[in-house]
Amino acid sequence: MTTDKDNLRTKIQAAIQSQKRPTVTVLSSLLAIQDSIGYIPEEAIEEVAVNSNTSINSVFGVASFYPNFRFTPPGEHSVEVCWGPTCHLKGATEVLESVLEKLGLDSEGDTDDGKVSFRFNTCLGACSQAPVISVDHELYGNAKPDIIPNLLGSLHEKENHHQ
């Protein structure tokens, strides 16, 4: 009988093996795993270390360096608020307040029901539409605080469609 742990390892190995870009590294493998299962469990660190013929320590060194990696399963939905200077000038703080209130959070993290993961983004790359937020990887520009309740309101019921 296969356990959940075995399953996880199978998925991790599949993610490592399925990389299409010619250059495979510790970083590219970690990114592929996070894309596939949404986070970097301990098993992933171990598998990447074996696959890249390096130590667990150095793989964790890489994973802990880049803030886009997370080490616990993510919520079904992702919300990101840009805190870059343009967005800041254009009212990102008010948008942030509205998002935190709607999600019941104080700062970055996951909602109590585990459905939504919230984080900051240093620049979502659409500064000319500031302030910008991202919901399940869809960008919303000119995001005024009053659109937030509607935009995020349905997330708790919504199917996850971003994977």
Partner: peptide, 16 residues
């Protein structure tokens, strides 16, 4: 409100 993400990178040498 002033919340910004803080750098939480474990610093190189001691971690590895």
């Amino acid at each position: 409100l002033k919340i910004v993400p803080k750098n939480t990178r474990p610093y190189a040498t001691d971690h590895i």
